[in-house]
Computed example of a mutant assay.
Amino acid sequence: MTVDTAYNEPENTEVLVKAVDPAQPACLAELHYAHAGDAGADLKAAERVELKPFERALVPTGVAIALPAGYVGLVHPRSGLAAKQGVTVLNAPGTIDAGYRGEIKVPLINLDPEHTVRFEVGDRIAQLVIQRYVEARFVPATALPGSDRAERGFGSTGVSAA
């Protein structure tokens, strides 16, 4: 049996990207993946931001996108910012619906209890993951089918039913 070790390129979906202000640096209007196979494209700060400990800010990116129907943009934290500086995306992942055409803004929070964090224009602040989604058709029901988990909720995995 042979294993194909060649990297298989995924299908590409076209997403239109527009600079919110044409006078901004060109790097802001460019969304791209840092490495082949990356799921997230870098989102960059469009203005200088300073976050004191436990402070939050809605940081503009300078870009707007047009997603095709059936796709969603998910704004995720950058793992390096979280691990090294304690900065994360407040509502992670943030949702960008296919019909939204406004500027992407990222709600960042500094969870470091001691250090202020500064971002300059063009600094990477988050990552954008594009995914297909299924639009559900919700059907009213008076009862739901059974399952192994049933109604056991938070913290119930691995706990035997009493």
Score class of each variant (00 low, 15 high):
Leu81Arg: 06
Asp38Thr: 10
Asp148Thr: 13
Thr157Ala: 14
Glu9Cys: 06
Ala26Arg: 15
Gly94Ser: 06
Ala83Gln: 11
Leu74Ile: 00
Glu120Met: 01
Thr95Met: 13
Lys18Gln: 04
Arg152Gly: 08
Thr88Ile: 09
Val72Tyr: 12
Ala143His: 03
Gln131Tyr: 02
Tyr33Cys: 03
His32Lys: 15
Ala26His: 15
Pro93Gly: 09
Pro107Thr: 12
Ala150Asp: 15
Ser160Ala: 15
Ala6Gln: 09
Val15Gln: 01
Lys18Leu: 03
Pro68His: 09
Thr116Gly: 07
Leu81Cys: 09
Pro60Phe: 06
Tyr100Met: 05
Val75His: 02
Ala41Gly: 11
Pro25Cys: 07
Val117Gln: 14
Ile130Tyr: 05
His76Phe: 12
Val15Tyr: 05
Ala161Gln: 13
Ala162Pro: 14
Gln131Pro: 07
Ala64Gln: 02
Leu58Gly: 09
Val3Ser: 08
Asp4Thr: 05
Arg78Ala: 06
Arg48Ala: 11
Glu120Lys: 09
Arg132Asn: 02
Gly102Ser: 08
Asp148Ile: 14
Ile104Asp: 01
Val3Lys: 10
Ala143Asn: 00
Leu144Ala: 02
Ala66Ile: 14
Ala64Ser: 09
Thr5Phe: 11
Glu14Leu: 11
Tyr33Pro: 13
Pro145Tyr: 02
Asp97Thr: 10
Glu103Gln: 07
Ala141Tyr: 01
Gln127Met: 06
Arg124Cys: 03
Arg118Ile: 05
Tyr7Gly: 01
Ile96Met: 02
Val89Arg: 10
Val59Gly: 03
Tyr7Phe: 13
Ser156Glu: 11
Glu14Lys: 14
Ala45Trp: 02
Thr95Gln: 09
Pro113His: 10
Asn110Trp: 12
Val106Ser: 02
Thr95Tyr: 12
Leu81Thr: 07
Ile96His: 03
Ala41Glu: 05
Thr142Gly: 03
Arg149Asn: 12
Ala141Ser: 01
Val121Tyr: 00
Ala41Asp: 09
Tyr100Phe: 13
Thr5Glu: 04
Pro25Met: 04
Val75Pro: 02
Ala98Asp: 03
His32Thr: 13
Asn8Asp: 13
Tyr133Trp: 13
Val129Asn: 01
Tyr71His: 11
Val134Arg: 14
Tyr7Glu: 10
Ala136Asp: 10
Glu120Asp: 02
Ser79Asn: 05
Ala143Val: 02
Ser156Pro: 12
Ala26Pro: 15
Phe54Ala: 08
Glu50Gln: 14
Asn91Gln: 13
Tyr71Lys: 06
Val59Phe: 04
Leu90Cys: 14
Pro53Ile: 11
Val15His: 04
Pro53Tyr: 12
Val89Tyr: 08
Glu9Asp: 10
Ala141Asn: 00
Val20Arg: 13
Glu50Ala: 15
Leu28His: 00
Asp42Phe: 05
Gln24Met: 08
Thr116Phe: 12
Pro77Glu: 00
Glu103Met: 03
Ile125Ala: 04
Asp21Phe: 08
Ala39Val: 05
Glu11Gln: 12
Glu103Trp: 06
Gly37Trp: 04
Asp42Trp: 03
His35Pro: 06
Pro60Cys: 02
Ile130Gln: 03
Val3Trp: 08
Gly80Asn: 11
Glu9Met: 07
Val89Gln: 07
Lys105Thr: 03
His115Ser: 12
